[in-house]
Design a binder for these strands. Structure first.
Lengths: 344, 344
DNA sequence: ATGAAAGCGCTAACAA
DNA sequence: TTGTTAGCGCTTTCAT
């Protein structure tokens, strides 16, 4: 166990300390530590040895100020409470890891005023780019994004006008496609169960897509049930029970996410309700966690990881090229899984 | 794809711009924007108006360098791929939100060398504190932590010597307590199913606690099965099938997390295996998501949210008090849930 | 209550 | 290949 015995100093070490310890100018030390410019092998080694011996850790704050380059990407998402955004984060992290950029996360709790505050906070670090969930922002937030002078990628949703770039799926289309599956399978009495939607724009758009498409087939939503907070699996059970008791002839349950759909499925199985014969079920998200549930739930994959990866890629490319705007529009195809809870 | 006409590549606004626009010195503008010092109401309003009109966003990089204060907390965790760390993050975020501190996350993928790199990276931002998962770090990482001159909180695990503070549960004790439940219920042929453990120190400690405690009762682990990657629910099924086929007289399945335990439970239910009569099942984590599964799985809560909250609190208090060391040790009590998959 | 001057620790640009 | 000189945009300190 070779301990590098750095003294427990109060004042953090600076380049000057390394410079003095190695007898080389600060500038050359800086060059060595960043692998920049031509430095002789001998000098390089002396500097590296000194830095390591002292336990020097560079100060990025100073470096960023001097170079006008901040290798941070602001990531602004509504929540960490279900797997959706952690998965997006995973895609972002994995993509950025190969380069110099690092993600910094801000959570909005689905509140526009929090989003505004978090965005302001983030922008004050002068990040190299912003990845932000959704296309709906307050006017002030949009203004900040538009004037930040850095690439902005709005993610998850493509139904609307982005400030700069957008990566995601069309939730309207997702709702429409599911409606086609449902009506195509012959279901007639359809219920929608989901989160309270005033601020969950993506769930709202799926709902709108669904109802519009059903309307074209002469069908309409026969019952609805909403929740907020609590254990999703448990809420799925409760809401399903409420709907089926209130409207016993319901023959299809469309949930706004897979977790509540799984709760609903478990409720049906427990109560001897035949799925998909008597009642069909579909969710949304393609949560990998649930792949093991039998019967497999019909769902659509929101491509969360890929969304994160593509968004990060846009920022990384812009940063490399020194551009402050990308103007890309990437609409991914949500993969439909029929599973065994929807007749075909 | 409509291109917005926003003026790109503008030089970001500085205090000087606001100063000129409001006819007040930079210093006074700075005071207004930070609510520091005495500034007349009239000046204050003029400055705020100008800042808002121009859309000025302060530069924290410069502010941090000048003030030697960086309101960031480095959070270093292994992964975002299951709900454990996002929940810890939620606890941290919620606690920090009321103050000036902001979390910055680094992911290690359970790799010591990544941990070292991420830590170095993080420390170079000169954060106000570090929250890092686990007590096992490379010598270099420990040295960096010890010499950083800021409060360090190691989280999730209390079985070992922290650099500074520690908040978590004892995984050894968690294993021991579960062993007592298992043997107390009369199970004799016990299998362990979990992640490959070389680097998952916490799962390893639970395993050790379990085997030691079982040994005292004259019992030992009769079979083991490990996995890595993939859908946890699915893996739970597969591993369970493998174990039960290989060792048909197994009467208890102890899983290293609730998700694979749920997969195992579903496998048993599908195959007409009586739980908990024929085979008992227990997991670990108290994943709220799974509360809706019936029968409810026996598990122990790792207090993830609370761990995050307490850790953040320690950093916040230290920062407020200007201290660089806390030396706190907070061992939380994992709550045991017997559920209906373990006889009593 | 307000302002002027002097850095914070580093890097860009140029000089030697 | 190495060193010198000016800042980066803000806050600290001290003067007014």
């Amino acid at each position: 166990m070779t301990d590098t015995q750095a003294p427990r100093q109060r004042r953090p070490l600076t380049l000057r300390d390394v410079s003095e310890a190695s007898g080389v100018s600060e500038m050359t030390v800086s060059r060595v530590l960043r692998n920049r410019g031509d430095v002789s092998q001998a000098t390089r080694e002396r500097v590296q040895e000194a830095a390591k011996r002292l336990g020097y850790v560079p100060n990025k704050i100073a470096g960023a100020l001097a170079s006008q380059r901040v290798n941070l990407v602001a990531v602004i998402i509504p929540s960490m409470k279900n797997m959706v955004f952690p998965e997006v984060m995973t895609g972002i992290s994995e993509t950025l890891e190969s380069g110099p950029l690092q993600p910094v996360v801000g959570i909005t709790h689905y509140k526009p005023e929090r989003e505004e505050a978090v965005l302001y906070e983030m922008l004050s670090w002068r990040p190299s780019g912003v990845i932000i969930a959704g296309l709906e922002h307050s006017d002030a937030a949009r203004a900040m994004l538009a004037n930040a002078g850095i690439p902005i990628v709005e993610i998850m949703d493509t139904d609307g006008e982005p400030v700069d770039s957008v990566v995601g799926i069309s939730h309207r289309r997702a709702g429409i496609e599911m409606a086609q599956q449902i009506s195509g399978a012959g279901y007639k009495k359809i219920a929608f169960l989901g989160t309270k939607m005033p601020l969950d724009h993506r769930a709202r758009k799926r709902f709108e897509g669904l109802t519009n498409a059903l309307a074209k087939e002469g069908l309409e939503i026969s019952d609805q049930e909403f929740y907020s907070g609590g254990s999703a699996l448990e809420k799925g059970r409760e809401m399903t029970e409420a709907v089926l008791k209130r409207t016993p002839d319901i023959d299809f349950l469309y949930y706004s996410n897979d977790m509540i759909a799984a709760g609903g499925l478990l409720y049906c199985l427990d109560n001897g309700i035949d799925v998909p014969g008597q009642v069909g079920i579909a969710g949304f998200n393609g949560i990998e966690l649930l792949d093991g549930i039998k019967p497999q739930i019909a769902t659509m994959d929101a491509c969360r990881r890929e969304v994160g990866a593509k968004a990060a890629e846009i920022i990384a490319k812009c940063t490399e090229a020194g551009q402050s705007f990308a103007g890309k529009r990437i609409e991914l195809e949500p993969r439909l899984t029929i599973g065994q809870t929807l007749l075909r």
